[in-house]
Simulated assay, not measured.
Amino acid sequence: MNQPTHLNATKVFYRPVDVAIRWSGLLEYEAEILEHMSQGADLAADTPCNWSILNLNLERLLDAMRHGELSYGKAGITRNDPALLTSPELTIRHVDVKRWMSSAYPAQKPAFLFDEAERLSPKVITQATAQALLEQIHSLTAQSVSPQRSSQQESQLRLNSRAETTYLNIIGALLTLLLGHSPGGVRYSSFNTLESVISALIAHHSGRPGITERTLWAKFAEAKRHLSAYS
């Protein structure tokens, strides 16, 4: 009688194929997949389901190990021995797989690595999303510090107190998100400090109104104070 899959999904350490099977959501086919592999059969063809994703995920794991992004070893003991990469005794620890996947594939939360609370937590911000947030911060900041407008333009574009508070709260919330992390400890973005956010803004938007180190520090500090006042 087959053992229920949820009882043997999580282990202290795995072979790369074990991780790929679980990552691909194919644990129910594990025995059949391993039999195919032992016979040298093509997993992407003549199988009861599409196992091509298994090959892709397996290659992703091996690529990460080859490039030093994912620790590996033998019998669950970490060893930095490249000869193991072609050995059937190659293993990867559970904690190392989870750490690597959180960084390399933050949007993916396979159940054998992440508990229910972690899978339900907000998705990590991708680099593209982070850039969009930076654009939004730039736009909001520029509206409050645009130089050399005529008196009529200043009158039309000057932020009233309520609108300015709204903008500052939005900026503060975006900063909190950029520098925060999920309940499971996974960072929402690659930015670790406020200084790194400011550096990125200046690098991408230098010369635009409001995008100076002094102004950004002042505005961000003001935004954080406004947001804290409503906490």
Rank of each mutant, 00 (worst) to 15 (best):
L113N: 00
L201N: 04
L62K: 11
E69W: 08
E118P: 04
L140R: 13
A20K: 01
S102K: 10
A128I: 08
D115I: 10
E28V: 07
E116G: 07
S231G: 06
V97G: 00
T47L: 01
P16M: 06
G184P: 03
L134P: 02
Q152M: 12
E213C: 07
S121T: 09
E89L: 09
G68S: 04
P122N: 11
T78H: 06
F114P: 03
H226K: 10
P183C: 13
S155W: 07
L113S: 02
N57G: 01
L85C: 11
T141D: 08
Q143I: 12
A132Q: 15
I211H: 03
A203H: 04
T126Q: 05
G180A: 07
A163I: 09
A111K: 12
S231Q: 14
L175H: 04
R60M: 12
E30S: 12
A45E: 08
P82E: 09
E118R: 04
R158Q: 13
K11R: 15
L179Y: 07
A203R: 03
S139W: 12
Q136T: 14
Y167H: 09
V197D: 04
P147I: 06
G76E: 05
Q3P: 01
A132K: 13
R60F: 06
T86D: 13
T165M: 13
L157A: 13
H67V: 05
A41N: 08
W23G: 00
A200E: 14
S196W: 06
A20W: 00
K11L: 15
L58T: 01
Q152N: 10
A83I: 12
T47D: 01
T129N: 13
A223H: 00
A44K: 07
P183N: 11
L26Q: 02
H205L: 03
H205S: 09
I77F: 12
L84K: 03
T78F: 01
I125L: 15
I171H: 02
A9I: 00
S146P: 01
R149Y: 06
G76M: 07
L174P: 00
G180S: 11
S196G: 05
Q39S: 08
K224W: 01
R60W: 06
F220C: 06
A9E: 10
